[in-house]
Amino acid sequence: MTVKGSDMDCALDHLVVRTGDLIQGRSAMESLLGIAMSARGMHAQMGTHNHLAALDRDSYLEVIAVDPAAIAPKAPRWFDMDNFSGSTKLSNWVIRCDDLDYARSLAPPGIGEERAFVRGDYAWRMLVPHNGQLPFDGCYPAIMSWDSKHPAPALAPQGLSLRGLRITHPQADDLRDALKPFADAMENVRIVQGARAALAAEITTPSGEIWIT
């Protein structure tokens, strides 16, 4: 569901789970959630590949990794993936807005420049930071706009629903202020004070409630 805002429409679009190896990451999410993810997709411009799983509200969960068979891009990859190491983890979230230029003007410095992407029947534009890392240690959302249909309706229903996204950050008040222009996308998002930046999502699955961290 997209809630109508006073200046633009925006909504939480998807959650990003980074992993060092896509096969292992997919297996971890399928075991945790008790679902089967989509077929592999590739992002040639970023040198990454992914699997998706449908959530409610025209959103989805994305497991993404650097594609070892792809040509490395000249610029840093999105979601700070060039500096990622370690286990599979929930690392980022993405919101969609119907006016990307206006959204960029409201976002904090470092949100990035607009880049256009096409994959099969899908086309979108996203603000990608020059260094690959989103503001507030990656806790600020990436901002995008779809120029085609949304992929979520084409994904197999898995009975998954996003109950809430909890964002922990040592500058929680500043992060809240920076997100005020995008209140329409914050319905299921809670920001809390903490020593370290972290994301955690509570997902309803066919077998019960699961936390992804």
Rank of each mutant, 00 (worst) to 15 (best):
S59N: 08
N50Q: 07
M37T: 03
M46P: 01
N50P: 13
S87E: 12
A65N: 13
A54I: 01
W78Q: 14
T48Q: 05
V63M: 01
A53T: 03
A70T: 06
E62A: 01
S87Q: 12
I35Q: 10
N83F: 08
G34Y: 08
A54P: 01
R57I: 00
D67Q: 04
S87F: 10
G41C: 07
A70D: 03
P76E: 05
A44N: 08
G41H: 15
P68S: 06
L90Q: 11
L55W: 08
A28N: 08
L90W: 13
L22C: 08
I35N: 01
R18F: 05
I23V: 15
I64Y: 00
F79H: 06
S91N: 05
P76I: 09
D56T: 10
A36I: 13
R77N: 06
A65R: 02
S91V: 11
D67C: 03
D67I: 01
N50A: 07
L33H: 14
N83P: 04
G20S: 13
A39D: 15
D56E: 02
S31V: 07
D82W: 05
V63E: 00
V66P: 04
K89F: 02
E62F: 11
M37K: 01
W78I: 11
H49D: 14
Q24E: 13
I64A: 03
E62N: 09
L55V: 13
G34F: 03
K89T: 15
V17T: 11
G86I: 04
S38W: 11
A44M: 05
D82V: 03
Q45I: 02
S87W: 05
R18H: 13
M81S: 11
S38K: 04
A70S: 14
G20W: 06
L61A: 08
L55N: 03
Q45V: 01
F79S: 02
L33C: 06
Q24D: 13
L32C: 13
R40Q: 12
P76T: 11
H51Y: 09
M29W: 02
M46N: 04
I64G: 00
L90N: 12
A75E: 14
G47M: 12
A72G: 09
A44Q: 12
A69M: 08
T48F: 07
P68G: 05
I71G: 00
H49S: 15
F84D: 06
T19S: 12
D67F: 01
H43Y: 12
N83H: 15
D58N: 15
F79N: 03
D21M: 04
K89D: 01
L52V: 09
T48P: 11
V63C: 04
R40E: 14
I71D: 05
A44G: 00
S85N: 07
A69F: 08
T19H: 01
